[in-house]
Amino acid sequence: MAGNGAIKEDGGKGVKEMVIERIKSIKGIPPEENMLPGTPACAGCGGLLALRHCMKALGRKTVIVNAAGCFTLLAIYPYTPFKNSWLYTAMASAPAGAQGIRDALDILIKKGRLDPDEDLKVVVLTGDGAAYDMGLSSTSGAINRNLDFYYICYDNEAYGNTGVQWSGATPFASKTGTTPPGRISPIGSELAKKDLFAIWNSHKPPYLATISPAHPVDLINKFKKAEQYKGPKLFIALSPCPPGWGIDSSYTVKLAKLAVDTGVWALKEAVFGVVTHTVVPKRFKPVEEYLQVQGRFAHLFKPVRQEAALNKIQEGVNEYWNRHKLLL
């Protein structure tokens, strides 16, 4: 990062923040590919697209620490799509794996057994199931210890790899394998999506952001900004998943964009706990536009329109943006 920006004093708080050379358009996205094609991920995987951009931002001096999920199958012996290193751990403990690697690199460098040039960025890569549910304890520990690492959560709003079941990230009224809409429970998932951003942000990490594969410029700039901080740098990418969401694989980017334009997915960042929204739609599209194109919400429209559920979703979105005084 050094030399890539000036330092700005933030008046009252005395927090130093680098002025980042932001990219302005997709022309500014690094052309180098650090994750190559030919993986077994589904066609149109939104998470994979987000990851491709993340890896451009992170570069090759990186070790990915993975938890069980769809992306565990990216590295299948004896192949890997990555130009960087990789360690698969288990579903619950990728952040603990990052702790061991970071600490080991630090000690080996300190004891003169590893050249500092050999140092790596340590990057946790997990799905939402690991991040929102089983891995919450190990993530909280790592953030609390101010571990110097990145965390990329590709959030497809379900346990995808096991065939799409409910997770703590599944939104209200979504159909999954374990929340099937039926005569008794016509809504599907009755529970609200957990607010992982708020949970993580309660630790006041140096950097935390939501990202979208449909907003690569915003994504790259967030990584650029994050780089100046030592400590946890955390990213949650809402990631359309064609088989899980019931959409055509050509629809991924469009849907990721609709999630932002309807206000369902707020693009924001938080620096030491202070939240700023980075992309605010000028006029919010109705949430229905986002819902009605997805198979997982089809039961809200057919055979009968579930007006109450649809209203509840729209009201939830309105409430969020009202609370942040950003609903124009």
Binding site: A92, G97, Q99, D103, A104, L108, S137, S138
Partner: peptide, 25 residues
């Protein structure tokens, strides 16, 4: 002269111990 860290569980502890070992420590 060792790095010492209290983890959030034995599951995490074993993961960290193993990954540090996999890094060469």
């Amino acid at each position: 002269d060792s790095k010492y860290v209290t983890m959030d569980s034995e599951h995490s502890m074993l993961t960290a111990a193993g990954s540090a070992s996999a890094t060469g420590a």
